[in-house]
Design a protein around this nucleic acid. Structure first.
Lengths: 160, 160
DNA sequence: GATCATATTGAGAATAATTCTTATTTAATA
DNA sequence: TATTAAATAAGAATTATTCTCAATATGATC
C-alpha cells in the first residue's frame, strides 16, 4: 500500500531468481499471486489474494493460491502469521520486524524497533531451548477501532 | 507440571469465586476442565483436555470442553495462543509472561523477562493504534528437538 | 430435602479453512 | 516444435470448531 515500486520490484526479482535457482516454474499464476502479497503491507489471507488475483486471472482456483503461498513460504519469500480459528495471513516483508494487531478488526501492521531487536533473552530460556527468532506482538486497537468506527472486517471475539 | 499445589488451589478458588460472582453454574464438568488447564504448564488444546478429563468423566463431550474453555476465556481465567492451522491452545497463567515455541514439535512454555516488560514501544506505533498488551514470542528448538530426539507430537511444517 | 426455572450437557449434524485427487494444461528444455 | 515433468482447476475430502435440540443437572426457593 505504501510500498515503493523499487521495493516491490526487488521482491519480484528475488522471487524470479529463487525460482530459477531451484528449478521452480515461473507460471503466470505464481507471478501474480506473489505480486499480490509483495505489493501490500496488509498481510492478506489466501481468500483475499484469491479475490484480487481473480480479477486479473478469472480461471484462478483458490487451491492454487494456497499451494503457491505455501510454496513461497518454503522458498523463504513469505512468512505466515495469525491466530487459531483465523485464516492464515501472509507477509512478504523479510526484514526483521514486529507486529501490531488490532484485537477488534484484525488489522495487522509491521513495525520496527532497534530496542526490541537488541534485547538479551533471559537465562531461563536456556533450559527450555535454543532461540532462533524473536518477535514482539503488540495487541491493541487500531486508530479506526479506537475512534469507534467500524471498519470492514470484524472478528467474532477479540484475542487479547 | 511443575506447578505448586498452592498455585493450583489459588487458580481453582479464583474460578469458583468468578462463577459465584457472575452466576455461572459450577458443574462437575467445568471444574474438571478448568482444573486440567490450571494444573499444567503445557498449554493444552481442547482435544488434549478432552482426553484427560474423559478419564475421570467418561461421558464428557468434546463440545463441552470447547464451550467451557471459551467461557473461561470470557471470564478472563485463561488466554489462548497458537497459530492458524493449529488447534487453539489454552493458558491459565494470568501473570504477564512471554512464550517460547518449538518450531518442530510445538512445545510451548512461558517465560518471564523484566527487560522485555519495561521496554518502551516505538513512536511509529502511535500512528497505527493504541497498544494494550505486548508479548514476545521466541521461536526456536526445544532441548529435545535440538538434541535430535523426536518427541511425541510433531508438526507438518515449522512456522518460523 | 423436594421443586422449579433455567443453564448446561451430550450426540450428532453442520461449517469453514485448508488439503487432496485426478484429469488437463503448460513451462522449460532438447 | 516435441517432450516431459511440474502445475493447474474443479470438486471431493479433511479437520478443528460450532450449532441444534432433546435430556439433565444446578442453584434458588419453599
Amino acid at each position: 500500500m505504501e510500498l515503493s515500486k523499487t521495493e516491490i520490484d526487488k521482491r519480484m526479482r528475488s522471487f524470479e531468481n529463487m525460482c530459477r535457482k531451484l528449478g521452480v516454474k515461473r507460471t503466470h499464476q505464481r507471478m501474480e499471486i506473489f505480486r499480490e502479497v509483495a505489493q501490500t503491507v496488509e498481510h492478506p489471507d489466501a481468500e483475499k489474494v484469491y479475490r484480487k488475483v481473480s480479477e486479473r486471472i478469472p480461471t484462478m482456483s483458490l487451491d492454487t493460491v494456497y499451494r503457491t503461498l505455501w510454496l513461497l513460504k518454503d522458498l523463504g519469500l513469505v512468512t505466515t502469521l495469525g491466530s487459531p480459528r483465523e485464516r492464515t495471513r501472509f507477509d512478504a516483508n523479510l526484514d526483521h520486524h514486529h507486529h501490531f494487531v488490532c484485537v477488534k478488526c484484525g488489522m495487522t501492521r509491521d513495525f520496527y524497533s532497534d530496542d526490541f531487536d537488541s534485547l538479551e533473552l533471559p537465562d531461563t530460556l536456556l533450559s527450555i531451548g535454543e532461540a532462533v527468532k524473536t518477535q514482539v506482538e503488540v495487541k491493541g486497537l487500531c486508530r479506526k477501532c479506537a475512534a469507534g468506527e467500524m471498519p470492514g472486517e470484524k472478528k467474532k471475539e477479540a484475542t487479547l
